[in-house]
């Protein structure tokens, strides 16, 4: 598959800047910082635990991302379709996968900015005590990978519609299912009738279970592979959707 990295870089640059061209970036960063801090302090007992670690902070990330990543991804393709720019974009001498990758990387880089801004937490815990920095680093990597998986799913769904609201809601629902698949609620409902390997499979796909593994400080291969392969699969579907539904 021929790939022009120049095209990917150009699309990336345009999309990354586009986040900051509207109030979306500021609103997103504020909400993300406020919620991740608020939840860690008030619902996670960040201080009461009396431990210098970031566990209560990271524990909320799956729940935050399942709402916030669809918010970042929803405009990536739906807006192109609504405005008709997709027609211009896809008649330039570029390949669909170059545009798909460029757009995804722009959203992912924006997420990285949001995560970097939360590192003030890390500094606070370093000041207050001595957190296990290995765990913190592994957790950040896990959080970034999980966010990428949510984002790729959101971008893919965004390519299926010209309506950003629909893109957001569908992406949030799919993300919710992936988060919930590891909980007893879902597993108990399956255990009654599904064969054991299906239950195991569903459980192994759970974003929460896999993210928890990473926040324990070990970059476990299965968890990393799950998130990376989710990204690859979602982007591959994204390319197919863009190719097939160019005119819809």
């Amino acid at each position: 598959m021929k790939t022009s990295f120049r095209t990917i870089a150009l699309v990336f640059g345009r999309e990354f800047r586009a986040y900051f061209a509207t109030p979306l970036a500021a609103v997103f960063l504020l909400v993300f910082l406020a919620l991740s801090a608020g939840l860690a302090f008030f619902a996670g007992g960040f201080f009461e635990r009396g431990q210098a670690d970031l566990g209560p902070f990271f524990a909320w990330h799956p729940w935050l991302f399942l709402i916030l990543m669809p918010a970042i991804g929803m405009r990536l393709w739906a807006d192109e379709r609504r405005s008709g720019v997709i027609e211009l974009l896809m008649t330039l001498p570029v390949r669909a996968h170059e545009v798909v990758i460029g757009k995804f990387l722009a959203g992912w880089a924006f997420t990285a900015v949001a995560l970097v801004l939360t590192m003030s937490f890390w500094l606070v815990t370093l000041y207050l005590g001595s957190p296990d920095n290995g765990i913190v680093v592994a957790s950040y990597i896990g959080s970034f990978l999980m966010a990428g998986a949510f984002l790729a799913i959101s971008a893919c769904i965004s390519a299926m519609t010209k309506n950003q609201v629909i893109a957001f809601i569908l992406a949030a629902i799919v993300s919710f299912l992936l988060v919930m698949s590891g909980t007893n609620l879902v597993l108990a409902a399956l255990r009654g009738w599904a064969p054991a390997f299906v239950v195991d499979l569903v459980q192994s796909l759970s974003f929460i279970t896999n993210f928890d593994r990473l926040t324990r400080g070990v970059l476990e291969a299965p968890a990393v592979i799950l998130f990376l392969s989710t990204i690859v699969l979602a982007l591959w579907i994204n390319v197919q959707v863009v190719d097939a539904k160019k005119a819809a």
Binding site: R14, A18, A21, T22, S83, G84, V85, E87, L88, T91
Partner: peptide, 13 residues
């Protein structure tokens, strides 16, 4: 060179 119907463009640029 192609001008699609309605001359779409990135409005934020």
């Amino acid at each position: 060179g192609y001008l699609p119907e309605g001359a779409p463009a990135y409005g934020d640029m």
